[in-house]
């Protein structure tokens, strides 16, 4: 699993308007014998503004921040300076993109991507000749 978001950004910075600039959410990626689990921090994103796409071998995580703000709010200090998250991952072919399970609670996205059956480990008997 490689992260190609970093490779794409320079091209986007030149051509895309500022509205499509996005923060890169921090992630944890853990692999076990049955699949990969990805955790991503997307604070401030309500469930209906989270978008996940799996296309061919590309997984895209996108979300828009929507915070309750009273009228006339003027920013004094901002560390989260954009209202959008985006991160793109390239999946490898032993992962089953059809069976991705997603859960989103309190700003944390949990994605479980199982491995295809034949890629799961099998004990191989060693024959003694």
């Amino acid at each position: 699993m490689s992260d190609n978001a970093t490779l794409r950004r320079p091209a986007q910075a030149d051509t895309a308007p500022r509205a499509t600039e996005a923060l890169q959410p921090p992630v944890d990626v853990v692999e076990d014998s049955a699949g990969i689990t990805l955790y991503a921090d997307l604070p401030g994103v309500p469930k209906d503004r989270l978008h996940l796409h799996v296309e061919a071998d590309t997984l895209t995580i996108e979300g828009e921040i929507a915070l309750p703000a009273p009228e006339g709010l003027e920013p004094i200090h901002s560390e989260v300076g954009l209202a959008r998250y985006r991160r793109v991952f390239t999946l490898s072919k032993e992962l089953d993109a059809e069976r991705v399970a997603a859960e989103f609670a309190q700003g944390v996205l949990t994605l479980r991507i199982p491995k295809v059956e034949h890629a799961q480990p099998r004990r191989i008997a060693v024959q003694v000749g």
Binding site: D41, L42, L67, G72, V80, Q106
Partner: peptide, 26 residues
């Protein structure tokens, strides 16, 4: 503290001060 956790945004209006701490999954 920039880069600390949680990230914070602070804003103000004439009537209130609003603090947003981005602390997911707690």
């Amino acid at each position: 503290a920039r880069g600390g956790y949680p990230a914070m945004n602070v804003g103000s209006t004439a009537r209130s001060v609003e603090i947003y701490a981005f602390a997911p999954g707690i």
